[in-house]
């Protein structure tokens, strides 16, 4: 499977990445190479193999349900571009 320029444009938009139009062909080529590797792996018989969700052979550790965090709002908001009344301000979201 190989990607078209339009596929790359779509993927770039979804990931909010700016890919200039003269880069599109080379990016499409690179991504297609990755997909070719996937196809190669897809051809391997994996009957009876449990899909791996994580490279570590461990199970998720669980944490007790305790409140351990304190309020650090001022600290966090000191690096925010805009805040007001404790809220982070962002460009208006249109629904």
């Amino acid at each position: 499977m190989s990607l078209e320029r339009s596929d790359v444009e779509k993927i770039a938009h979804l990931a909010r990445l700016a890919v200039s139009s003269d880069e599109l062909d080379s990016v499409a080529g690179d991504l297609s190479t990755i997909l070719q590797l996937m196809e190669q792996m897809n051809a391997v018989n994996t009957d009876g193999v449990i899909p791996m969700a994580h490279p570590l052979h461990m199970a998720q550790r669980l944490r007790p349900d305790e409140v351990s965090e304190i309020d650090e709002r001022d600290h966090f908001q000191s690096i925010a571009p805009a805040t007001e009344n404790g809220l982070y301000l962002v460009p208006r979201v249109i629904e």
Binding site: R61, L62, R63, P64, D71, R73, F76, Q77, G86
Partner: peptide, 25 residues
Amino acid sequence: EPNTQACAVDLGLPGVLPVLNREAV
């Protein structure tokens, strides 16, 4: 009060690691 219960993990700051709450499970 707004954002007084949002810690580094909730804010998605770099370098944080989510750890699953046993009680939710």
